[in-house]
Design a protein around this nucleic acid. Structure first.
Length: 255
DNA sequence: ATGGCCTGCAACGCAGGA
């Protein structure tokens, strides 16, 4: 079972990229973030043609998440139960006996912003929810744009980013606490090249200069981590015409 | 040198992203 996550930064613009990538990579499950589409505009038919069912939770202009899968997703949940939110950032579904949680964690903007406080409150609620979910679903995968670079090695210039949003100590502590629940960062289960990132700023030729961050993650419960055969960031689509600023991340789980 | 780029909205510049 191949699981993937991709912040597409507008599914309307990136649908051709997504269809090309699905055809090339044949993932079984794909979590999408920043679809920026209302549900009535979701490209259900195009994805069905490509062989994917879709669950989605969108809104106008901002946010929006989706789960694509080869088999019908069931038991969908559109929010953290104890954290009602107008912003569509959460989608959970069960796919073939595996619980999939797709997240678009708030960016936070800057550490002195109200949005940063919202991010920390959001992460508190996430922590409590995932603890309960793990007790219910042994096979649990959490995929998405976490907007957290967990360690300095996930940052192109740790000195420049020190203390800034996405790298601040409270955010990293939250990420560490998720691992403390028993989740594993799939990417770090394997030997990886240095300076592997999943997001690069559109400005200043960020991608060409590999000035990026690793902020898109796949976390796996113990049974899934034990069966995980690989995890990689596919940087190729970031070099395509009119790319998303994020690259897809995928993990292979043995059947 | 505190911007730069991209998307959506519905502007004719803004908010938001990271």
């Amino acid at each position: 079972m191949k699981l993937a996550t991709w912040n597409v930064n507008s599914l309307k613009v990136r649908l051709p990229h997504l269809l090309d990538w699905l055809a090339a990579e044949s993932p079984d499950v794909v979590c999408l973030q920043e679809t920026k589409l209302t549900n009535d505009n979701f490209p259900v038919d195009e994805l069905k043609q490509a062989g994917y069912r879709a669950a989605f939770s969108g809104q106008k202009t901002y946010n929006g998440v989706a789960i694509l899968s080869r088999v019908e997703p069931t038991d969908m949940l559109m929010a953290i139960p104890a954290f009602p939110d107008e912003q569509k950032r959460v989608l959970a579904a069960t796919v073939d006996g595996t619980r999939i949680i797709c997240l678009y964690i708030p960016n936070g903007q800057s550490v002195d912003s109200d949005k940063y406080q919202y991010k920390l409150a959001w992460l508190d609620a996430l922590q409590a929810w995932l603890k309960a979910e793990l007790a219910v679903y042994p096979r649990l995968a959490v995929l998405g744009d976490f907007n957290i670079a967990p360690e300095d090695r996930d940052v192109h210039d740790p000195a420049a980013w020190a203390g800034h949003v996405l790298c601040s100590e409270p955010e990293r502590a939250h990420f560490h606490d998720l691992l403390g629940l028993g989740l594993k960062d799939a990417f770090r289960l394997f030997e990886q090249d240095d300076k592997r990132f999943s997001w690069w700023d559109y400005r200043q030729a960020g991608f060409r200069r590999n000035r990026g961050l690793r902020i898109d993650h796949i976390l796996l419960s113990a049974p899934l981590a034990a069966a995980c055969k690989g995890c990689r960031i596919d940087t190729a689509p970031r070099a395509w015409e009119r790319p998303s600023d994020h690259a897809p991340v995928s993990a292979e789980i043995a059947a």
